[in-house]
C-alpha cells in the first residue's frame, strides 16, 4: 500500500477524515525519517488538506520532527521527579558517551539526544526512552551499556 492509501484507510475509521492527521503524520514520519516538505505534502494530498495546515498541526506536537533527526532517538526525562533523582547526571552521561550536546545528532547521523518533559515513569526515574521504548530506572552508570547497545543495533 502506498502512504496515501494507508492514510486513507486510517481516515476511514473516523467520522471525519481530518481526525487522521496525527496518525497520518506519524506514518509519514516513519517512512521519511522526519516531516520533510514532501512528507507534509503527501499527507495533505491524502487527506485533502493544505500542506500549510499539516505544517501548522505537526509543529505543535513534540513528537514530530520538523528537521531531520538521527536513526535512533534517545530521550531523557528531565522533569522534576526524574530530576530529583539524578536525571541531569544521566543526560550528561549520554552527552559524553555520544559526544553531542542535548538537542543534537551524532556526526554519523545515528543518534539524536533530547531532553523530554515528564515521560510518565516518575516513580522509576530516571526514565530514558530509546526509540520510544522506556528504560526505567536508568542511572548514569548504565549509560555506556545503553549506548553500546545502540551502536550494535
Amino acid at each position: 500500500m502506498t502512504l496515501a492509501e494507508q492514510i486513507r484507510e486510517i481516515a476511514a475509521g473516523y467520522p471525519q477524515s481530518r481526525s487522521a492527521v496525527l496518525p497520518a503524520l506519524r506514518l509519514a514520519q516513519e517512512q521519511h525519517g522526519w516531516l520533510s516538505p514532501d512528507a507534509l505534502r503527501e499527507v495533505a494530498d491524502a487527506l485533502d488538506l493544505t500542506p500549510a495546515y499539516c505544517q501548522s498541526v505537526a509543529s505543535f506536537y513534540d513528537m514530530f520532527h520538523m528537521k531531520p533527526v538521527g536513526r535512533h532517538l534517545v530521550e531523557v526525562c528531565t522533569n522534576i521527579s526524574c530530576a530529583l533523582v539524578g536525571a541531569q547526571q544521566v543526560l550528561e552521561a549520554f552527552e559524553s558517551e555520544l559526544g553531542v550536546k542535548t538537542g543534537e545528532t551524532t556526526a554519523d547521523g545515528e543518534v539524536t539526544l533530547r531532553a523530554l518533559e515528564c515521560a510518565g515513569g516518575c516513580g522509576w526515574g530516571t526514565v530514558v526512552a530509546i526509540d520510544h521504548r522506556y528504560r526505567e530506572p536508568v542511572r548514569a552508570e548504565d549509560v555506556p551499556t545503553i549506548v553500546s547497545e545502540l551502536h550494535d543495533a
Partner: peptide, 26 residues
Amino acid sequence: VLHRGAGAYICGEESALLESLEGKRG
C-alpha cells in the same frame, strides 16, 4: 478507536484533547 497523541501536555486538557482528536492543533 484508539487514538495516539503526539507529544503535547495540553492535550490532556479536555477541550484541547477534542481539538487534537479532530485533527487540529491542540
